[in-house]
Simulated assay, not measured.
Amino acid sequence: MHKTSEDTAVSTNPAIVLDHVTKEFHLRHTHSMKETAMAWIKRKPIADDFQALNDVSFTINEGESVALLGLNGSGKSTSLKLVSGVLLPTNGQVLTRGRVAGLIEVGAGFHPDLSGRENVFLNAAILGMSHEETEARFDDIVAFSEIGQFIDTEVKHYSSGMFVRLAFAVAIHTEMDTLLVDEVLSVGDEPFQKKCFAKITELQQQGKTLMVVSHDLDSVKKVCQRGILLKQGQLIFDGPVEETISALRAG
């Protein structure tokens, strides 16, 4: 075991392993039979293969907090989705230890015609929690979200701020070993953001593993000690987060 600068324990056991991972997508350029026929007549390609990740390898140990950095299209979100199991690699393998929870699309499992209470149980189930686990955490989720008396109101009547706060509260209270965070470090107003950072710090102190994608470099520096820089689907730097940010800015 060794310690980070924040004195949070980090294990030498791998929590996430990407082993020579390549991910390709088949992109169609036509949307109808007519467009396909016209493209064929004009000898234009109707589809292309796009390589989002090209032979990427890295290991994140239990208890580490790591930022994936890079410009748009560099492969960051694809990497998160591979780790979460939403996508499968074209080549190579992705290995994870324990339960992985993803703040990738906050509120993606919410149904507008259900109440906040019903959506808490629905979304928690999607995130892998049992009914009993959700019941045990329900009061903490509602208190964290600051929804209060509106918990039994249909979420289609919520403001965008209320919706995001409740969705984030469910995800952050999930029983997990590894937390994946994609561009949600700036949800809600400033007081709520501070509460989110405090919760993330609490999870880190419990030894949870954190993998973060964000364009907010100030937030990244607050929560991550290590950075991995991707460029056009390839890993080009892996080191202390400050050095990774410098490498990103240097182009």
Score class of each variant (00 low, 15 high):
5 S>L: 15
6 E>R: 13
10 V>D: 05
14 P>V: 05
14 P>I: 08
15 A>I: 07
22 T>F: 04
23 K>M: 01
27 L>Y: 08
28 R>Y: 15
29 H>W: 07
29 H>Q: 07
31 H>E: 06
31 H>G: 05
38 M>Q: 13
39 A>G: 05
42 K>P: 10
44 K>F: 03
45 P>G: 07
48 D>K: 08
51 Q>V: 15
53 L>H: 00
55 D>P: 05
58 F>M: 08
64 E>V: 07
65 S>G: 13
71 L>D: 11
71 L>T: 13
78 T>M: 13
78 T>G: 10
85 G>V: 14
86 V>D: 11
88 L>H: 14
91 N>E: 15
98 G>A: 08
102 G>I: 09
102 G>E: 09
104 I>L: 15
107 G>H: 04
110 F>E: 02
114 L>P: 10
120 V>S: 00
123 N>E: 10
125 A>Y: 04
125 A>C: 01
128 G>M: 11
136 A>K: 01
139 D>A: 06
142 V>E: 02
150 F>E: 07
150 F>H: 12
151 I>Q: 03
153 T>H: 14
153 T>I: 15
162 M>H: 06
163 F>E: 04
163 F>D: 02
165 R>V: 09
166 L>K: 02
169 A>T: 05
174 T>F: 11
182 D>F: 07
184 V>L: 10
184 V>E: 09
187 V>F: 06
189 D>W: 03
190 E>M: 15
191 P>K: 10
193 Q>G: 04
201 T>W: 12
209 T>F: 12
210 L>D: 06
216 D>S: 02
220 V>S: 00
220 V>E: 07
222 K>L: 07
225 Q>F: 07
228 I>Y: 04
229 L>Y: 03
230 L>F: 03
232 Q>P: 04
235 L>Q: 00
236 I>P: 02
238 D>W: 10
239 G>A: 08
239 G>W: 03
243 E>L: 12
245 I>K: 05
246 S>H: 14
247 A>I: 09
249 R>G: 09
250 A>L: 15
250 A>M: 14
